[in-house]
Simulated assay, not measured.
Amino acid sequence: MEKIMIVEDDKKIAEYLRAYIEKYGYEAIIATDFENIMGTFRDVQPNLLLLDINLPSYDGYYWCRQIRKESISPVIFISARTGEMDQVMALENGGDDFITKPFHPDIVMAKIRSQLRRAYGEYAAVKHEERVITQEGLSLYPERLELRFNDKVAQLTKKETDIIESLLERYPRVAGRQDLLEKLWDDQAYVDENTLNVNITRVRNKFQELGIEHAVETVRGAGYRLRITWKEGEA
């Protein structure tokens, strides 16, 4: 039975979500210690997280960043905030989807099922063995959110991992901007052009941590391409 963890400080909303989720055969756990969300997360080991933004002590963005250091379990933000930047921030901080309040419970369930299928079900990669994507000494471990080169390791966010995975899979071809947007964000209406640029810059910084300069080439009018042939002294 899949476990859904609910992080919502409005008790009525939390109980409403719990009852509705359990009606569909899932186990729902409500977090109550808002200063130790990570402790509850580690104890529960949920398959998916429903996360409010406005929380006591630390906001949902903070907790999502902490979760992404340890897990790639889907995170769906549920919030009364309706601004485009709030939704961009949710995705930028590691979220997978965003639902605005007030919400219809059927929409919540549809998004939960969609994310569970993507992460564990018919759309998920085979989980029998850990996936490793390797090219010319580079090794990407998507489930660990790690990029390795020689004896160096760079820790990645989920978005950074997705971008590098796309670049590796398309090498030596160009990964189009539109393709990257579709992979990273389902609802592109809330993503401005600069958001992808910011993430590409972060990816370049990760390569620099490994001692690799100029790893991601901008192909004007098309997208980005991974430059695999490292020059002497860049390793």
Rank of each mutant, 00 (worst) to 15 (best):
A125S: 14
I53P: 09
I4C: 03
V75S: 09
E169W: 01
G60L: 03
H214F: 14
T134A: 08
K152C: 07
F34A: 06
L168S: 09
E182M: 10
P74I: 03
Y171K: 00
L156S: 04
E122T: 13
L210R: 05
W230N: 05
G39F: 13
T229F: 11
A125M: 12
M38K: 15
E209L: 10
Q87M: 15
E35K: 14
D97A: 05
Q115K: 13
W230M: 00
R118S: 01
E165M: 11
V203M: 08
T195P: 01
L51E: 06
E22V: 02
S79W: 01
A19L: 12
K231Q: 11
S166N: 12
L145I: 06
I29H: 13
I228L: 14
Y62F: 10
K159H: 10
K159I: 06
T195M: 15
I21G: 12
Q155K: 07
K206P: 04
V219A: 06
Q45W: 05
Q87V: 12
K12S: 04
W63Y: 07
R204P: 04
Q87G: 00
I200E: 08
D192S: 12
S71V: 01
E130Q: 13
R202P: 01
N197S: 04
I53C: 06
F41Q: 07
Q188L: 06
K231H: 12
V198F: 15
I163V: 15
E182C: 05
H128F: 11
R177A: 00
G94D: 01
Y171A: 06
K206T: 10
K12L: 10
G221N: 04
H214A: 14
I72E: 07
S79G: 08
R131T: 15
K69M: 03
Q178I: 14
